[in-house]
């Protein structure tokens, strides 16, 4: 797959996010966009401010993925921000991510729902054929 993409998948009470990419990093970044899209249209979010995330990591990509989404949820909540661009780097014991976005503007973004957290439901980070997929269900 030349280019990453994201989608939502059905889950009764909540909603699933899924990112695809050439690398796990790209799949994570795409899933980050899917997370934003649960709240608002990512195209409506301007790239005004940058936020950095750093997370320890012990080799389990699936647990790291949930940690990553939860770190994004945390930054969204305490900064009252939405993010529309993600750059993820996974190093030996560390995940570093740069998030670009802006503060929530209720009339512009019409935020639909608040994300409470990422869960282990339908959690998967795997290489399928030529591309990586990273997914889980969010609690909203």
């Amino acid at each position: 797959m030349a280019q990453g993409r994201w989608e939502h998948f059905e889950h009764m009470a909540d909603i699933g996010v899924r990112g695809y990419g050439a690398t796990p990093e790209e799949a994570f970044a795409q899933a980050g966009l899917a997370l934003t899209a649960v709240v608002t249209d990512p195209d409506q979010v301007a790239l005004k401010e940058r936020v950095e995330i750093e997370l320890p990591h012990d080799g389990d990509l699936e647990l790291l993925f949930v940690d990553f989404l939860n770190a994004v949820v945390y930054e969204m909540a305490v900064r009252s921000m939405l993010f529309a661009q993600f750059e993820v780097r996974i190093e030996q014991n560390l995940l570093r991510a740069s998030l670009w976005g802006e503060r929530v503007n209720r009339s512009k973004h019409q935020p639909a729902v608040e994300v409470k957290g990422a869960t282990y439901t339908e959690l998967k980070v795997a290489k399928e054929n030529s591309h990586w997929v990273a997914q889980c269900v969010l609690d909203v």
Partner: peptide
């Protein structure tokens, strides 16, 4: 947010 964060953290710790 307080409850959501506690839920998130302990879901992980309990694994």
């Amino acid at each position: 947010g307080l409850g959501h964060q506690i839920g998130t953290e302990y879901l992980k710790k309990m694994q």
